[in-house]
Design a binder for these strands. Structure first.
Lengths: 144, 144
DNA sequence: CGGCAAAAGTGGAACGATTCCAGAAAAGGG
DNA sequence: CCCTTTTCTGGAATCGTTCCACTTTTGCCG
């Protein structure tokens, strides 16, 4: 597993460091976590890692395409390892929980805007907003 | 025009105040502006309005559905008056420019996730990422 | 028309996520 | 094993936004 992470890092010419491996392990076990959670998870293994290192690692991994950053409106950034498969997310308005959703209508339509205003579009991001099962059962009616 | 804004405010039982009318006028003339820009536009008419008043007004209008807040990942919040018509946005990766895009595939598919994980979904938000005509013509290749 | 309670606005301080910075440590090619 | 470059540390700074206590306005009501 670690050697897999190593290979992926080398494939994008990033050096293999303990903080990077720890971040990749954390994201593999915990999809959709925010930076604070990543810091906590990484420090469980490597207690001396600085918050800045985690920010740097997340940026390096995101820039090189090994990690995907998702940032629902009004929330802090979250990260996941699942990448390059055009999946989307459902976000709970009450508790912020996130779940994966495969592309609703296949591949093509998601990337096709009705009028692109001359923009060169390379990605269509879809966020479904609603309430998760737990929040719905707590309060069947509207948001608290 | 102002009387239209008044009517809309009263319709959602909000008091009619100068700052609120000024914000509505600013958003009508300038779609997709951020809070700073709204503050500047409002102060052109009412120089003494505090930044806090603008934040409060934007929140009140957004909560009551008169204004829509959009917040592309990694950018500050932006606001628009066009509301309740299920339109989406294209965002330029280089300069942050935003343009409106009508729903790509009609109404139904946009709200239909392939597997909703038990979430009660009430909205599907789509953001198209790419590069605007101006940025493409400046640097036809990748992002700077 | 003038008064009153509730709603809005003012100005300034506080906050939280993220970034900037300069120096120390570690990675990996020769 | 050494040297250059990349990465990490620790602390300060930034930026958008929110919190707070107090003052002003709005709009209902007599």
């Amino acid at each position: 597993m670690t050697s897999d992470f190593e290979a992926r890092l080398r494939a994008v010419s990033l050096r293999v460091t303990r903080p990077r491996l720890a971040v990749m392990a954390a994201l593999t076990d915990h999809p959709h976590v925010d930076t604070d959670a990543v810091i906590a998870l990484v420090r469980a293994d490597l207690p001396t890692v600085s918050h800045q290192a985690v920010y740097d690692v997340l940026r390096a991994l995101t820039d090189s395409g090994l990690v995907r950053r998702i940032q629902p409106a009004g929330a802090t950034a979250r990260y996941e390892m699942r990448v390059r498969d055009n999946h989307h997310h459902v976000v709970c308005r009450s508790c912020g929980a996130i779940a994966d959703v495969d592309c609703a209508v296949g591949n093509a339509p998601c990337l096709t805007a009705s009028d692109d205003h001359g923009f060169v579009i390379d990605e269509a991001e879809v966020v479904y907003w609603g309430r998760c099962p737990a929040c719905v059962s707590k309060r069947p009616e509207g948001i608290p």
